[in-house]
Design a protein around this nucleic acid. Structure first.
Length: 266
DNA sequence: AATGGGACCTGCGCGC
DNA sequence: TGCGCGCAGGTCCCAT
């Protein structure tokens, strides 16, 4: 999906245009994306409520409703929230009292919508580690020091640090000059410090640019995020490293495409 | 405990 | 033109 910067972008977009609006009707075109409760209860539990507040926990969006319930959305790989929506690709459409729709689109159907009495009880959220901005450098270094696992899959482990996915793991490691397959406990103090700093800087810049539109991700308005043009390694296999001209390599780590510069990243 | 593979789905781009 | 394959931002589950 959409990683932390993309979900944060959608959250900020939602705050500007959706808060305070009333959901008058929920149209379920594809029930599979509604994971909890039944589609019928989902619909009845939402209709008539106002959208009070928008939260984000790592990659999960939470819409707090005036009836006390929370609507959560995990976009996974291809989920989108679009407003005003055309309804064309919509899996679920939330019809608002102003006549416009908030559409949940999701080509691959991995995405998840839930209506919960309390989002804090969602197991997935309970299992999340702190986001990079909420983690101390000391803690980051401590965890790396005791893990032999490859650094890139570790950065994507949501129970350790949450919000980083495949794109920002790759970009953060490039900027930290660390090879993605290095055992986490092999990083020196200096390397860990630089990596942590660069991960946070990358995420911050990506948020400022409205996220990375590589494939399906779009902002709430449907326009593309502006950060993909700043990617230094992600999706650039075979192209020259922007720092040293060496061709960027692609390998598989943990089953995921992993992009890095074999010269800059040691 | 940690790692690797497959599963969940659909659709796109590529090589033949 | 058509077909088969590999690939895709995430996460879970199972086997080793």
């Amino acid at each position: 999906m959409p990683e932390l910067p993309e979900v944060e972008t959608i959250k900020r977009d939602l705050e500007k245009v959706i808060v305070g609006k009333k959901i008058t009707d929920v149209c379920v075109h594809h029930p599979a994306v509604i994971r909890q409760p039944s589609p019928d209860k989902f619909k009845k539990g939402i209709e008539g409520a106002l959208i009070k507040n928008i939260l984000r926990k790592a990659k999960v969006l939470i819409l707090e409703l005036s009836n006390g319930k929370s609507l959560t959305a995990h976009l996974k790989m291809t989920g989108q929230l679009v407003y005003p929506g055309s309804g064309v690709k919509s899996r679920v459409s939330f019809h608002l009292s102003n006549g416009k729709n908030l559409d949940f689109n999701d080509q691959r159907l991995f995405g998840e919508l839930r209506l919960l009495d309390d989002w804090r009880s969602l197991k997935f959220i309970q299992g999340l580690g702190p986001e990079p901005f909420d983690m101390s450098e000391t803690r980051f270094k401590e965890i790396l020091a005791k893990k032999k696992t490859k650094i890139k899959p570790l950065l994507m482990d949501q129970s350790f640090i949450s919000g980083i996915g495949n794109i920002y793991a790759a970009e953060g490691l490039f900027r930290g000059r660390i090879h993605p397959a290095r055992p986490a406990n092999s990083l020196s103090d200096k390397e860990k410090e630089l990596l942590f700093k660069e991960i946070k800087a990358t995420l911050k810049e990506a948020i400022e640019a409205g996220g990375s539109s590589v494939d399906d991700y779009v902002r709430l308005s449907g326009e593309r995020g502006g950060y993909a043009k700043y990617h230094k390694v992600y999706g650039r296999q075979g192209k020259p490293c922007l720092a040293c001209k060496t061709p960027i390599k692609r390998i598989a780590l943990g089953g995921r495409g992993t992009f890095f510069c074999p010269k800059c990243q040691k």
